[in-house]
Each structure stands twice: as C-alpha cells, then as structure tokens.
Design a protein around this nucleic acid. Structure first.
Length: 200
DNA sequence: CGTTCGATGCACT
DNA sequence: GTGCATCGAACGT
C-alpha cells in the first residue's frame, strides 16, 4: 500500500552535484519492498564520495568492474560488500561518466520494524536497528542482489514524505577511511540517536 | 565507561 | 597477497 503524500524521488533529484543530493537526502525516506515485505526509515546520516580525484571514492583507481555503477546513470543503487561481512548501499549521483555517489549510513526505522528485528540476529533497540551502514542493509534485506537497482523503480527507492526539512544538518569528516579525511563530506542530524559514532 | 581485535569475501595490484 | 566507506565481542580501567 502506497504511503499517502509520498513522492518518489525522480532521476533529476540524483542528477545534481553530490553534496546537494547528500544534504537533501537527510529527512527523506529509504524504502525497500522485498518479498512482499516493506521496510523503510528516515535518512539521518549520509556521506558523499565524489569523483576520481577523491581518494576515498571507489572511482579513485579509474573504471573497474566493481565501481562500474558509479560511472552509470544517476538514480541507481551501488551496493558492494565490505570487510567480508557487510553490504553498503549508495545512491549514484551526477551525470553519466561523472562517478559519484552518496552512502546511506543511518536511518530512523519507520515501517517493517518486526522484519528488521528478524533480520538482525542480535536483539537491539529500535533506534539501533539501522544505525550504521552495515546494520541498515542487514535490517532492510539489501544485498548485492540490489546492486544497480533503479532507484526510480518500485522495489528500492527514496521518498519525500514532506517531513519538515531538518534544520540541524551538521557536516564533518567521513568515517572509517584513511585518505580524504580532510573533506567534510558526512552530513548528519546532530544528536539523533540513530547516527553512528566514529570508532576511533 | 574506554580501547583492541578478529571475522570474513572479494576486488584489485 | 593486501586492504578495505564495518561490527560487536572481549577485554581493560
């Protein structure tokens, strides 16, 4: 059942400068419909990865098999496996041939919370279900099967539900990288309980 | 509270 | 063979 007042983000939303897309994704709702189960959550933390000149972006080495989605059209998912354990989901931005994306790092769970709890092996409070990029993909059932998925389709997409625009968007260094740390390309809601904390 | 470290698969060199 | 856009168990204080 469609959510009243929800507007699915169109390709033109993603076909813009990545930092603008990152900022505007805060407060939007990520939705995954899988096997008749719908999970969703409000985006509260993202990171931008922009171009071959960004040493932390997967496009830094130039086009490869893995990073091909970054070079493709905007508004598609780039999902990859990291540390042998976790799937991470990105929204591809900017024009074709301009490799960039926004990593979704944390959500405030909205719908399908029982399904999320089922998928997370460990029992955690609701606000921790989608805290961290590896945790949210697990909770929403996002894997490599969703790599290159069209975000303008009906399975995996992002909605504008007219939530009040977050006034407290903060910017800081990206987490978990060793290069490009001087760029303040992580956008998040300060004080939100679902925002992941830097490790060290 | 805090910090350290192993798990685990795969793309890339 | 190396190095991850991570997580949480295990330990120390």
């Amino acid at each position: 059942m469609a959510h009243v007042g929800a507007v699915k983000l169109r390709r033109s939303f993603y076909n813009r400068p990545t930092l603008d897309v990152a900022r505007d994704l805060i407060g939007k709702v990520l939705v995954h419909n899988r096997r008749g189960v719908r999970t969703s959550g409000i985006i509260v933390e993202v990171e931008a990865y922009i171009g071959e000149s960004d040493p932390a972006c997967h496009a830094a080495p130039g086009p490869t098999t893995r990073n091909a989605p970054l070079y493709g059209p905007p508004g598609h998912a780039y999902v990859y496996f990291n540390y042998g354990v976790h799937w991470l989901v990105n929204a591809v931005t900017e024009g074709e041939g301009s490799p960039a994306a926004v990593l979704i790092r944390a959500l405030e769970p909205l719908e399908g919370i029982p399904a999320m709890q089922r998928r997370r092996a460990r029992r955690v409070p609701v606000h921790e279900l989608c805290k961290g990029p590896g945790n949210l993909t697990k909770a929403m059932g996002i894997t490599g099967a969703q790599n290159r998925e069209d975000l303008c389709g009906g399975r995996l997409y992002i909605e504008d539900r007219g939530l009040p625009s977050p006034e407290e968007i903060a910017w800081g260094p990206r987490i978990g990288i060793t290069v490009g740390t001087e760029r303040q390309w992580r956008a998040f809601l300060r004080t939100h309980p679902s925002v992941s904390r830097p490790r060290r």
